[in-house]
Write a protein that binds this DNA or RNA. Structure first.
Lengths: 218, 218
DNA sequence: TGTACATCAGTGAACGCGCGTTCACTGATGTAC
DNA sequence: TGTACATCAGTGAACGCGCGTTCACTGATGTAC
């Protein structure tokens, strides 16, 4: 998961390096991203790079750290706004998921890729520290969404026997899988549609189906 | 998605190179996998490699091609065996999904990674040909599962309004996302649990909930 | 059966380029007294 | 206000290693006649 939107860029050289690196890493991988291409994009010398990062793996760590922070902020934002719109935990969660799908749908060139997924497919290139950072990020998202699901389950007893940790994880899985799907088949809307499908699942799990006059469920 | 199980290895040098390359690419990326480490693993000289592959991108193509073929074979197998166990399209699909989850659960060290996802996160490194191969593989899987869902929908009208292409795609998304999840949090069972969750969703979409004596759905 | 040639599956040495990293240095701005 | 020193944000040149690729060559096996 994760978004590009960078609000109020500090625009210092360090940030520019990180921006160039993020785009390059997400489209060709960390090992194939060279320092030379980054400094060319930013317009500094090779040593300028090493002033900001002690070595290439310091760049990796900073990249992932920044990415996780930004994603956290987006989730904070979406969940908070959803809570403002409904006091019911299920409705709030459904609103949040719809907002998330809309954010994904509004990305002009589709989602650029998830840093967590990229790191996962380059494990061996990173130190323990970076891989731990990645693991903690996912467990943190699980905890956060699990909390919501617990509150929902209190009011709406689940109609099927699903593990709520798994259901929380599924959002991350659907998002990361949806990004791969979207990029591979060149359909930017596939990702938001997958998020909406996850939303439908959550709804089916917790709420009774409302059958309309036509016999079709609402 | 995709499995390691290599049945009846030809065990030629070319195959050994592909095996070594697959493991390396899935764990560190294509750009960071060197020809030198592959020939060291196989025990041939550098020129021995170039006898089998005209250049490194020929390796990439062969790697992806082989991976897709193997995955296709696994799906063929699972769907065929499920059809033998039930003539009902929904039950057969649910059986197939359970089998798939079991295959994932039985991998001793967890799923090694999906080649399609790896290629997706290394786009810029590959020629058009390889990226097209990747896209076609996904569209092919969509077509195959969509077919099943159509037959299910005929007999079991969906209880909610979901697009069947999206629902077919979701298996691939959940699998690829589940692989990333599993690897990142070091829980090999997270992937099969995600597949079972997708299975639960399919069941909720198509079949009426059966309420048991305790008031809990079956 | 013997000989000539072809193919298969490589070897070994060399190539030049690009990579990450280091090191001594620099000009502009900030701070202390 | 002037001077000394410190810090910030870099430059430029050089390093050695590892990379993908090429090329001339080779020994074993297969095939034609």
């Amino acid at each position: 998961m994760g978004i590009v939107t960078r609000d109020a860029k500090p625009s210092g050289t360090r940030t520019q390096i990180l921006d160039a690196a993020e785009a390059a890493v997400l489209s060709k991988g960390f090992g194939a991203t060279s320092i030379d291409e980054l400094i060319a994009a930013v317009g500094i010398s090779r040593s300028g790079f090493f002033y900001h990062f002690k070595d290439k793996s310091a760049l990796a760590k900073a990249l992932l750290q920044r990415y996780i922070e930004e994603d956290d902020k987006i989730f904070d934002d979406v969940l908070r706004r959803a809570d403002e719109l409904s006091e019911d935990p299920l409705h709030s969660y459904l609103i949040a998921l719809k907002m998330l799908a809309e954010i994904f749908a509004d990305l002009p060139n589709g989602h650029p890729g998830c840093m967590v997924a990229s790191v996962c497919y380059h494990e061996q290139l990173f130190q323990r520290e970076v891989r731990d950072l990645n693991e903690q990020a996912i467990l943190n998202w699980r905890r956060r969404f699990r909390e919501r699901l617990d509150r929902i389950a209190e009011r709406y007893p689940p109609r099927v026997d699903v593990d709520l940790d798994d259901l929380a994880d599924m959002l991350m899985a659907v998002a990361d899988g949806g990004i791969i799907l979207s990029r591979t088949i060149h359909d930017p809307m596939a990702l938001p549609r997958q998020v909406m499908l996850y939303r439908e699942f959550v709804r089916l799990v917790f709420s009774e189906p409302v059958v309309t006059a036509t016999g079709r469920p609402a």
